[in-house]
Design a protein around this nucleic acid. Structure first.
Lengths: 174, 174
DNA sequence: TTGATCTATATCGGACCAATATAGATCAAG
DNA sequence: CTTGATCTATATTGGTCCGATATAGATCAA
């Protein structure tokens, strides 16, 4: 899903600045599988404005940098819905942790243990964030539940099977 | 994990051409969370060669384009292990499907149903591929099991809760 | 025999991210 | 009461990476 479409989608929920769009990914605990950086959000909003798919109003505040508040236009709404009618791109899940585990037999056992510990800690953190989220519609509840399910299953598996890669690394070290 | 490091990792398993490195991601059912395209593999191999982290030998076959077979050098092996000693980048899981579900209330119910069906079909396919894989070391077995766990849990959740987003879309359509 | 698929390398445009720059506001700690 | 950290807010740049495309002979099924 390209950044243009992501921006349009978030703007269907209400007007927002580029900064607020970015924050949506961090704050709302239900969106762990959608993201975009400032470096792509701001250019995307500029292009969307040129194409009249969003409109801007500059709120110049007292002694503050201008807030550029973006709104989706009817044309933008149509383009957004149109893009959801086309076949969706496939998920892409890239995991440096998984990659590293494929080479656990080349690593010092303490390093393997450290990797697993920090991966568990990170996953636990994300899970807590998801659990703290309060879904505001069935779509959000569905996504929230799916995220929770994936992290819980993943954590359970790692805790149950970490010994397999840890002892193997230890044996290889001898 | 950048493409350079991925290439080095795969070359620790044995010599390979760029084409074979790419195929590794598709064939071996245990690597669903690691990937790279030709457009980044070939430049990466060139750069690695310049830096003497890999070496090439050109096998010119009868009436066939040259096979450039790459081998990792001792220096490359050291760099690879060094990169696994540094903190790992975080996983990134981008899901257009999840994104679309957040807007299910704006879509025709048939479209939501179609999205879910095709997502289930895709996941089922990947799961079958993972199940068909034959892990050759504990690391691979661990990664294989983790992939299986994630897809199974995800499929189970979607089947149990799809009605929530589907009926909601139907109501919104009225 | 003809078209599809496979092996194999390579490049280009465009999308995207991480890092960085700027700058005033707010807020906690000392 | 001031200093440093964090927050709001926009923007650019360098570099990485992907998707599409080009080339070309081999193999294989219809």
């Amino acid at each position: 899903m390209d950044v243009r479409t992501i921006c349009l989608g978030i703007l269907t929920r209400g007007d927002a600045t580029g900064y607020e769009i970015k924050k949506t990914f961090e704050e709302d605990g239900y969106q762990h599988f959608v993201e975009a950086s400032f470096g792509s959000i701001y250019p995307a909003l500029n292009r969307l404005t040129e194409e009249r798919l969003v409109s801007v109003r500059s709120e110049s505040q007292e002694k503050r940098p201008d807030r550029k508040v973006y709104s989706i236009t009817p044309a933008g709404r149509a383009v957004f819905l149109g893009s959801l009618m086309k076949p969706l791109p496939e998920d892409r899940h890239r995991s440096p942790f998984v990659f590293a585990m494929l080479f656990s037999h080349l690593l010092p056992p303490e390093r393997v243990t450290a990797m697993i510990n920090s991966y568990i800690a990170q996953s636990e953190e994300k899970l807590a964030q998801i659990r703290a989220g309060e879904p505001k519609c069935p779509g959000e509840a569905f996504v929230n539940g799916l995220g929770r399910t994936i992290y819980e299953a993943s954590l359970k598996f790692i805790r149950a099977h970490r010994a397999d890669v840890e002892t193997q690394a230890a044996e290889a070290a001898e």
